[in-house]
Amino acid sequence: MSDDILEQAARWRGEGRRVALATVVATWGSSPRPVGSTMAVDEAGAMAGSVSGGCIEGAVVHEAQKTMEDSEPRLLSFGVTDEMAWEVGLACGGKVQVYVEAVE
């Protein structure tokens, strides 16, 4: 159903909102959503879709908003062992990489 998310992103953009897309590009272990899972985020923090079971969406929205500001894509890594870099982690013990890009 990732097409619905892309359509939502295009709709939001068409309404003049700033929008970013977050996509799971790699997973290790028992990550909750497979590679290719997509989430659209708008400037107000509205979300469509998901990149995990809800564990990291908050942090991804935060980074997505930075990406909307500076148009710089970001590659984020999340994992339980990665506490130095991220305060959020995956309770399931998996690890994911999420690519965040602005919709121009």
Binding site: D3, L6, E7, A10, R13, P73, Y99, E101, V103, E104
Partner: peptide, 29 residues
């Protein structure tokens, strides 16, 4: 993602045409 790429991607999906979106993660191209 450029608007043009997003629109072509959505059109391919509407037309039921398989397509791969390839992203260079370091440049964003």
């Amino acid at each position: 993602m450029k608007r043009d790429i997003l629109e072509r991607l959505l059109k391919a999906r509407t037309d039921k045409v398989p397509v791969a979106l390839v992203t260079d993660l370091s440049s964003g191209m």
